[in-house]
Write a protein that binds this DNA or RNA. Structure first.
Lengths: 225, 225
DNA sequence: GAATGGTTGTTAACGAGATGTTAATGAGTT
DNA sequence: AACTCATTAACATCTCGTTAACAACCATTC
């Protein structure tokens, strides 16, 4: 799963290039141009790291940082600033920034520093990201499927198939496509195997009637929820 | 307990001032003037953080950093350098440095940065600290596992495996990951060895039914408590 | 709509390989 | 020589993807 970054920067040209580069480096980036928007984003979803420009229209970077720190004492924050002076840097660090880069900065260095802090991030209590399907929580990394406290452990193949279906809900997924991807090939027996797994998954998800795995005769399946 | 810093720097005047300031800031500092001495110090006792000058007589800072990283993948490292150029900084970061400061640096900034990384350090399991698992107290350093007065002494390998499992409770931990980390490689016999240790640990933890080491067939284990 | 041929749903059985466990081995220490 | 401990061996047991078997279903043809 790609790390999710919150990038706040009002310079349109710079932010365009930077975001592009970060995405190339396999990060997922949400970009905001001012502190207010950034704050709304931050409240809406959990990020892995923040990159904040110090000079921002409406609420400067420091204010935003303070707000964020109040909610999340752990999230790594990198500051960007055009001003290089010492007091600025010190204030940033005192506010709970983890590093302070001066513009113009090297994108490569930024990426390395991001990785420093992602590496140092304390492992979440129960690692791996969950996906929600109806009443269930599916954790692909941990092979778990949870419904109000009840934990099922899936087998490797079960998790693979479920994961594949979940990536494309409510659309037609061809049999041969699944087989090629997960089994690596497509023959009669693999097809039968797939059917067995579909059947097992239906049973595992059976307690939520809003979830269905529909068969389209001769073509494939549709995962509905 | 004051954090213990390893400070490697050959400039006598600078190091004198810096060490003094760091001690004022409530750090305990071991200062070495060259890479060889530093390496000997590092092997002798566990440090909380390293501050390395890049230019050193006998083995430069980068070489030292590489050596240190091989033994300890976690310890935070800050580089100091008179050279400010970008390639130098990048090389440092790639080598596993956490930050790179250019001389002359502000001592206050150094202290703030040290604190950033000490704060981010994963909670030390070393240094004789105990971890509680259910009814047990596990001390990785002393290889002891205690339950209401009853003391068991683990072997080195047993402790390593338990330690690794405890770092990530309730998550799937892959076999190959454990083997790569603890045994350094992953072949059939090492795998069997791991199974033997899992079995022994289960027996040692057997008096607390709330602790379980679950196997996920073909993939790894889950340490539940 | 009955017959046919292919597809899918479901359950059970199978078996290769993974794991659990105990004991034997042998290298290194005391 | 006695001891410690990781590894290897040996054997028992378990798991899970596959295969089998049969029933239900669908589409097409007569």
């Amino acid at each position: 799963m790609k790390p999710l970054l919150l990038y706040v920067e009002d310079d349109v040209n710079l932010s365009f290039v930077t975001k592009d580069n970060l995405e190339l480096a396999q990060f997922q980036v949400v970009h905001c141009t001012n502190g207010l928007d950034a704050w709304r984003c931050f409240e809406r979803q959990p990020f892995d790291l923040c990159i904040l420009d110090v000079m921002l229209p409406q609420s400067d970077g420091f204010t935003l940082a303070r707000q964020i720190r109040q909610i999340d004492a752990e999230i790594p924050m990198l500051f960007l600033s055009a001003r290089a002076d010492k007091d600025d840097r010190l204030q940033g660090l005192r506010l709970g920034a983890d590093d302070y880069m001066t513009k113009p900065f090297s994108i490569e260095e930024l990426i390395l520093k991001i990785n420093v802090f992602l590496r140092r991030r304390k492992p979440p209590v129960s690692a791996g990201s969950c996906q929600t399907i109806g009443l269930y929580q599916f954790n692909f990394q941990n092979l778990t499927l949870e419904k109000d406290g009840q934990l099922q452990t899936l087998t490797h193949r079960e998790a693979e198939v479920l994961h594949y279906l979940m990536k494309r809900p409510n659309t037609l997924i061809r049999r041969d496509e699944i087989l090629k991807t997960i089994w690596g090939d497509d023959d009669y027996f693999m097809g039968r195997s797939l059917d067995v797994f579909i059947s097992r998954l239906r049973k595992r998800l059976g307690h939520d009637p809003s979830i269905r795995i529909e068969n389209l005769h001769g073509i494939g399946f549709r995962f509905l929820f």
